[in-house]
């Protein structure tokens, strides 16, 4: 955002000569103005905001490793299960399409017609963490004639 040098400049510009010091801190042999600048700069220092290094003992390291391995296995199983499900769905779609084509080509043609203007409905809800006050909208009436309906 800004360099240390520019900050020093801006800070020194605003430092007024102080009338007195309440107590003396001479750890760096600095005058009070400079010491204040150092203190203010130290607020920006990354080292003072970083936590101590996380050191695990050997047992805990092994445990951590085990947990991470189990997690990756869990994820892998889940993904593989979903993929196999998709694979099965794709095959059953293919099978149904082939069957339909062989017994009734007319229905097959209708089933494969391009659906122009087909959109995902706006009314469908995205899952949220907690349900809405009105969970389901029951009072639906179909649109009157002349309006578009899928």
């Amino acid at each position: 955002m800004f360099t240390v040098r520019s900050t020093v400049k801006t800070i020194t510009a605003h430092v007024k000569p102080t009338q007195q010091l309440r107590y003396k801190r001479d750890k760096a042999g600095l005058n009070p103005q400079l010491e204040r600048i150092v203190n203010q700069l130290s607020v920006m220092s990354a080292a003072r905001k970083q936590p101590r290094l996380l050191k695990l003992c050997d047992e805990d390291y092994i445990k951590h490793r085990t947990v991470m391995k189990a997690w990756s296995l869990y994820r892998k199983n889940k993904i593989e299960h979903n993929e196999s499900l998709l694979e099965k769905q794709y095959q059953s779609m293919n099978e149904a399409a082939a069957e339909l084509q062989s017994i009734n080509p007319k229905l097959y043609e209708i089933a494969n017609e391009h659906q122009f203007g087909k959109r995902f409905p706006l009314e469908i809800r995205t899952p949220t963490d907690f349900p809405p006050r009105q969970i389901w909208f029951y009072d639906y009436f179909p649109k009157v004639d002349g309006s578009k309906q899928q």
Partner: peptide
Amino acid sequence: WSVSNSPAAV
């Protein structure tokens, strides 16, 4: 809202 014209299985 039907997902597709084509069947999912037979």
